[in-house]
Simulated scan of single mutants.
Amino acid sequence: MPRNEGLIDRALRIVLGLVLISLVFVGPQSVWGWVGVVPLVTGLVGFCPLYAMFGLRTCPVRN
């Protein structure tokens, strides 16, 4: 599977995912924190299906 996320994009997604998931255990303890699994997984994998659908890419093109 080709990657379509750059390094900064991936790092931000991982941090955002972890912050949202932490809301399940601390803070308001809302179930909505599990939404953080989506950015966490896409950040770890390096591929975002929505980016692919819209033809977006933050990863530099390899020659």
Rank of each mutant, 00 (worst) to 15 (best):
M1V: 08
P2S: 00
P2V: 03
P2Q: 00
R3N: 09
R3M: 13
R3I: 11
N4S: 07
N4F: 09
E5K: 05
E5C: 09
E5Q: 12
G6L: 05
L7I: 10
L7H: 10
L7K: 04
D9V: 07
D9E: 10
D9G: 11
R10W: 05
R10G: 05
A11C: 10
R13P: 07
R13Y: 13
I14D: 07
I14C: 12
V15L: 12
V15E: 07
G17Q: 00
G17F: 09
L18R: 06
V19H: 08
V19F: 05
L20G: 09
L20F: 15
I21E: 00
I21V: 11
I21D: 02
I21C: 12
S22I: 10
L23T: 11
V24A: 14
V26Q: 09
G27L: 10
P28Y: 06
P28E: 06
P28C: 03
Q29I: 08
Q29G: 13
S30G: 03
S30R: 04
S30T: 12
S30L: 14
V31K: 06
V31G: 05
V31S: 07
V31T: 07
G33H: 12
W34C: 08
W34Y: 15
W34H: 08
V35C: 13
V35M: 13
G36D: 03
G36P: 15
V37F: 10
V37D: 02
V38H: 05
V38I: 15
P39S: 04
P39H: 03
P39V: 06
P39W: 02
P39Q: 06
L40F: 11
L40P: 03
T42A: 09
T42F: 15
T42H: 03
G43W: 00
G43C: 01
G43A: 01
L44V: 06
V45N: 08
G46S: 05
G46K: 00
G46D: 00
G46Y: 00
F47I: 01
F47P: 11
F47V: 09
F47G: 02
C48A: 03
C48N: 03
C48D: 01
C48Y: 00
C48F: 04
C48H: 01
C48Q: 00
P49Y: 04
P49L: 03
P49W: 01
P49H: 06
P49Q: 00
L50C: 10
L50S: 12
L50M: 14
A52Q: 06
A52W: 08
A52I: 02
A52N: 07
M53A: 14
F54C: 07
F54I: 05
F54A: 02
F54P: 15
F54V: 12
F54T: 13
G55F: 07
G55T: 03
L56G: 01
L56W: 15
L56M: 11
L56P: 14
R57S: 12
R57C: 14
R57V: 00
T58A: 04
T58Q: 10
T58M: 08
C59V: 04
C59A: 14
C59Q: 11
C59F: 09
P60K: 15
P60V: 11
P60W: 10
V61I: 08
V61D: 05
V61E: 08
R62P: 14
R62A: 14
N63A: 10
N63C: 12
N63L: 14
N63R: 13
N63E: 14
